[in-house]
Nucleic acid binder design. Structure first.
Lengths: 330, 330
DNA sequence: CTGAAAGCGCTTACAG
DNA sequence: CTGAAAGCGCTTACAG
């Protein structure tokens, strides 16, 4: 494809290819005069070293593998944005891997390893400790640096960046309680996400501290299916608060509640997690926990670069700050 | 990293490394007995060929480069999902490149080429024909197959997959006109996206066919800034219809209109483009053009595989079907 | 059908 | 400071 090789540069600059390689990788080892000459030729020819050949020779590909389950989820996109920006800054390329079915975990990992990436960012937050274990073991066995990006797990020795979901949910629940709510529901997802599990725990802690009764419901994300469930919850209960694991669920719940004549937030307070653009577009405007998803991506990529370069890393489990955004539903 | 090499397999299977390579790449050239023996060893050892070495030797990396401008945009995520799924199916890896600033175009392209990908999917839909030209020329010069994924351009000879935005906007506008609306605004984006340009054209065609007066406004995506503009539009005019280039803008506009007491859709019809999950969550529920963004990704990836393998491709400019989703605002 | 050998485009000790 | 040479782990004509 790219016809210009290191040989072309070398012959044109009247040096050996070793020298060209050095001005690229260890410029300080080359006499300034030679270096400048080579650099000029590189520039003239528009030479870029073949990343594949370089990867083979140096056993470093300056590529990181990003493992995702469901690309489609909105938060993933922003997190990827953060990852990309920082990767670019540190000159890493990004290879994307998706694990569509749990059965594919090991196979995907073999792929990742075969692709010779220098490190892995794991954003697959479906809660399956056994599978997570496989991931960790596979990667450890080849000494591949890994960081969990917004994935909560019991592996305390794996570098992680995220937020303190437990605390965030705790604070949010507590805030509702302080506002006088006594029948607060937690609406989680049917599918198990590790982060949602933590939110649930935080909710439970606040509820039990206040001696209230915990009430947890689970929904699929699907609006059509939610409708009857939400209606049922709102019909049969003296519910006066609802915390949803995701903004979209919260808005969906909010809509049903309003349709049924509930005054928000007097009769019913509602809150979600994420603070997407659409939180502001709901009516009334949704209150929620703001998740710095872009930053989570950026910071985890940065952490990974440190790990790949054996830099000293003070903190391996980074919790980014969260915030309660109070709008109109709380 | 991966310690098991083709040599290990060869010696254990008592064949030469050439034979191992053949069972992997040209199995039909190997005697069945030998093939099975080798396959067994591969299995036992869990051998995966080093993709980098393979890429260097064969000059095929079975990797495609995906060039994106703003990862953060919601539609990109779903499109990426389609790309990933099909890439996986055809055993291609995906490398992600972002072009953050226009100045980076050429530099990013050099990166892409240096990374030795076998083909490129270009999803950067900011309208800049000159820059698009650079992209095309750079890639053509190294004979790199490329497909424009949801990018509209004047380069009719570049394979493209998307929808007929002009027609979609035309139909949508026409539908509003048929419903008796006479003062229909088109609300586009300040930033130039090639697809939005087409939408504008379709809108204009329908408007002029009906001898109505075209009215185009542009907004940033930012809700805070939109508010006053929308208020202004709604205040000063006998507007009775609004088509927004994006769902989020449509919902935002809808909210302001309702706040000002407009009855939807009697006083004012509103429609958007995309059909995100949130279109259903607005109140009243947003009518819009449904864009098959996942499919656009999937189909363009499929098209690219054909191009990379020099398969005959009947259609190089694929327009996927769109649809008007009528909910409550139209 | 199989093996020996050259080569893909680099990096990196090793000499000098 | 610079060059000759080996080697990274594969693929692929070329013989046989």
């Amino acid at each position: 494809m790219n016809n210009i090789t290191i040989y072309d540069v070398a012959s044109r600059a009247k040096v050996s290819l070793a020298t060209v390689s050095r001005v690229l990788n260890n410029p300080e080892k080359v006499k300034e005069e030679t270096r400048i000459r080579v650099l000029n030729v590189i520039d003239q020819l528009g030479y870029r070293p073949n990343a594949i050949a370089r990867g083979l020779a140096s056993r470093k590909t300056t590529t990181v593998g990003v493992i995702v389950s469901d690309m489609t989820r909105a938060s993933i996109a922003e997190t990827l944005g953060g990852i990309c920006d920082i990767a670019k800054k540190y000159k890493y390329a990004i290879k994307l891997f998706s694990i569509m079915r749990v059965e594919d975990v090991e196979d995907t990992l073999k792929d990742v390893i075969a692709e010779q990436v220098d490190g892995v960012l794991y954003l697959n937050d479906e809660l399956e400790e056994e599978n997570l274990k496989k991931v960790v073991e596979n990667l450890k066995s080849v000494r591949m640096p890994i960081v969990f990006c917004n994935v909560v797990s019991d592996f305390s020795n794996i570098p992680t960046v995220g937020i303190n979901y437990e605390l965030a949910a705790y604070e949010l629940t507590k805030k509702m309680i302080e506002k006088g709510k006594k029948n607060i529901y937690f609406i989680s997802t049917t599918r198990k996400y590790s982060v949602n599990d933590k939110k649930e725990q935080g909710y439970l802690r606040a509820i039990s501290e206040a001696n209230l009764e915990p009430k947890i419901e689970r929904t699929t994300g699907d609006t059509e299916i939610n409708q009857p469930l939400f209606r049922y919850i709102l019909d049969n209960n003296k519910i006066d608060g609802a915390i949803a694991a995701r903004d979209s669920i919260a808005v969906s719940f909010l809509n049903v509640a309003r349709f049924m004549g509930k005054r928000i937030p007097e009769d019913l307070a509602v809150a979600g997690f994420q603070n997407t653009r659409y939180a502001k577009l709901s009516r009334p405007m949704l209150s929620c926990i703001h998740l710095p998803v872009y930053d989570i991506g950026a910071v985890s990529m940065r952490l990974l670069t440190k790990l790949m370069n054996d830099e000293e890393t003070v903190e391996l489990n980074i919790m980014l700050p969260h915030a309660i955004v109070e709008r109109e539903t709380l």
